[in-house]
Simulated assay, not measured.
Amino acid sequence: MPNLERLEHHACFGGWQDVYRHRSEVLGCEMTVGVYLPPQADPAHPRHAPCPVLYWLSGLTCNEQNFITKAGAQRYAAEHGIILVAPDTSPRGEGVADAEGYDLGQGAGFYLNATREPWARHYRMYDYIVDELPAWVEADPAASDARAISGHSMGGHGALTIALKNPGRYRSVSAFSPIVAPSQVPWGEKAFAAYLGEDCEAWKAHDATELVRSATERLPLLVDQGGGDEFLDVQLRPQLLQAACEAVGHPLRLRMRPGYDHSYYFIASFIGEHIAHHARALKA
């Protein structure tokens, strides 16, 4: 892992929860990334072997800390021998464009490559997640070449669209409370207009409900959605993804969870099931 500075190193469920800072050439800034190495990654472990990697994409306002401190995922990653990689949600720092409000700019990268200024210079989160980040993570001997992707809210949007746009690259994909149709909801309309311009046709390349229509790989989608989510009816609208998948026969398992909201309490309640889902695909 070149040009890395380790900021945190914590023993956790027999493995190590680390946080690194590195220079991203794609984003033109320094980025922080949480990496959990399960006990099986240690050459001294009796079941040592290269471990598959699960990439986690977080939501609006988040950084790498939200997932690694609130989700409780390390316990399950240790059980299944999976490396967890949780990057920040956007480029940051002096000289990186920003905006007022929580849903555009720093903390709100939407996992796409911006084409409009002032965003295009730094906001290339799609290239960062798909190419640059795995290049150094998976160069480590601890990692195998099997990968999966998951995320929450804006990160759920990122996980679904990135998996759909890269057939064969990910063994599995899942999402909590994803923004499934960003071109049809206020969060996405604001971000896409700023990052990509007013041409709505260009937005379709980053909208899961559009991408399933032409997907060449029938990668099953696992989505958990809280029934008590305050953003359910206006920003998330999972029924749109369900309808799009039904129209083309794309496999989707949409689980509505009564009473659960948009918080990490929801994620922590079901993250074990998601990691087990990924483990089955990663080790198949």
Rank of each mutant, 00 (worst) to 15 (best):
P2T: 13
L4G: 08
L4W: 06
R6I: 15
H10Q: 13
A11N: 13
A11W: 12
A11R: 10
Q17C: 08
R21H: 09
R21I: 09
H22P: 00
H22F: 14
S24F: 02
A41S: 14
P43R: 09
P43I: 05
P43Y: 05
A44R: 06
H45M: 09
P46H: 08
H48L: 12
P50S: 05
P52T: 07
L54E: 00
Y55K: 02
L57K: 04
N63R: 04
E64C: 13
E64M: 15
N66G: 14
N66V: 14
T69Q: 14
G72W: 00
G72S: 12
Y76L: 14
Y76C: 12
E79A: 15
H80D: 10
I83W: 11
V85N: 00
P87I: 05
D88K: 07
S90Q: 10
P91E: 09
R92Q: 14
R92L: 13
R92G: 12
A97V: 08
G101R: 03
G101T: 10
G101A: 04
Y102T: 15
L104G: 06
L104K: 01
Q106Y: 08
G107L: 06
A108R: 02
G109Q: 11
G109M: 09
F110L: 04
A114N: 04
T115M: 08
P118W: 00
R121G: 15
Y126G: 06
Y128H: 03
D131V: 13
L133R: 00
W136L: 04
A139N: 11
A142E: 11
S144Q: 10
D145I: 01
D145M: 10
I149G: 02
G151N: 00
H152D: 08
S153Y: 03
G156V: 03
H157W: 02
T161H: 07
L164D: 02
N166H: 09
Y170R: 01
R171T: 07
V173Y: 01
V173A: 04
S174N: 02
A175T: 04
F176H: 04
I179G: 00
V180E: 01
V180Y: 01
S183P: 01
S183A: 15
Q184K: 08
G188R: 00
A193E: 08
A194H: 01
Y195W: 05
G197N: 04
G197Y: 00
E201L: 15
W203L: 09
K204R: 15
A205W: 09
D207Y: 06
T209A: 08
R218F: 09
V223Y: 04
V223A: 10
V223S: 11
Q225K: 09
G227K: 02
G227E: 11
G228F: 05
G228A: 15
L232D: 07
V234K: 11
V234R: 10
R237D: 08
P238C: 11
P238F: 08
Q239M: 13
Q242V: 13
A244K: 00
E246M: 11
E246Y: 07
A247T: 15
H250S: 07
R253L: 15
L254W: 02
R257Y: 07
H262P: 01
Y264T: 02
Y264W: 09
Y265M: 14
F266G: 08
A268Y: 01
I271H: 03
H277L: 13
H278W: 05
A281M: 10
L282P: 00
K283I: 07
